[in-house]
C-alpha cells in the first residue's frame, strides 16, 4: 500500500507516493536523494537524523513520511543553500568541530535550534542543547567551542 504525499522540502514542492511504514529520514534519503541526514540508530537516541519540520527540530526516524503531509521540511542541504546555518558551518570547519562528519548535519540542526531559543548560551547550556546528539569522534569540546563562538559573534 502506498499513499500520496505532498509536502515542501527545502522550499521545493514535492509529491510522491510512499509506503506508510517509511520513516521521514528514509524518505528524504531514499526517495529524494537528500543523503545529508543520516539514520544513525533509528530508535530516536542518536540525533543524526535531526531535521526541521514546520520550523521545529524533530527526529527524522521517529516520524513517518506520511505524517509530513503538508509540512515544510528543511534538511542540511536546504539550510546550507539558504545560508541559514552558514555561520555555524564556518565555525565548525574553523574549529574542527567534526571528524567523520556523520553526526554533523544533525548537530548543526540542534545547534541552530539552540541558538534560536537562546542566543547567548553558557557552555553548560550548549552541552544541554546538543545532549541528544551523539558524536563519537570529537569529544564534544570543539563543537561546544564552535557554537559558543557563533553565539558571541
Amino acid at each position: 500500500m502506498k499513499l500520496d504525499l505532498s509536502l515542501t522540502v527545502n522550499g521545493e514542492a514535492i509529491s510522491a507516493r510512499v509506503e506508510p511504514r517509511m520513516h521521514l529520514v528514509d524518505f528524504l534519503r531514499e526517495v529524494l536523494d537528500l543523503t545529508g541526514s543520516h539514520a544513525g540508530c533509528e530508535h530516536g537516541v542518536c540525533g543524526a537524523c535531526s531535521i526541521l519540520v514546520n520550523g521545529e527540530m524533530v527526529r527524522g526516524c521517529l516520524m513517518l513520511a506520511v505524517q509530513a503531509e503538508g509540512a515544510e521540511v528543511w534538511t542540511v542541504e536546504g539550510l546550507t543553500e539558504s545560508g541559514a546555518i552558514a555561520a555555524l558551518q564556518e565555525a565548525f570547519v574553523a574549529r574542527n568541530a567534526l571528524q567523520c562528519g556523520y553526526c554533523t548535519p544533525g548537530m548543526l540542526v540542534a545547534a541552530a535550534t539552540l541558538l534560536k531559543a537562546n542566543p547567548s548560551p553558557t557552555r553548560e547550556e550548549i552541552r544541554e542543547g546538543i545532549s541528544g546528539n551523539y558524536c563519537r569522534c570529537t569529544g564534544y569540546h570543539a563543537i561546544v567551542d564552535a557554537i559558543e563562538e557563533v553565539s558571541r559573534a
Binding site: R29, L34, T35, G36, S37, H38, A39, T75, V76, E77, T80, Q89, F92, V93, A94, N96, L98, C100, G101, Y102, T104, P105, L108
Partner: peptide, 19 residues
C-alpha cells in the same frame, strides 16, 4: 589548518556507503 574535506561534510555532501 582546517581540513579540506570538512566543508563538504558540514554541507551534508559526504558520500558514505549508504548514500
Amino acid at each position: 589548518v582546517p581540513r579540506p574535506n570538512a566543508k563538504r561534510l558540514v554541507a551534508g555532501r559526504g558520500q558514505y556507503v549508504d548514500d
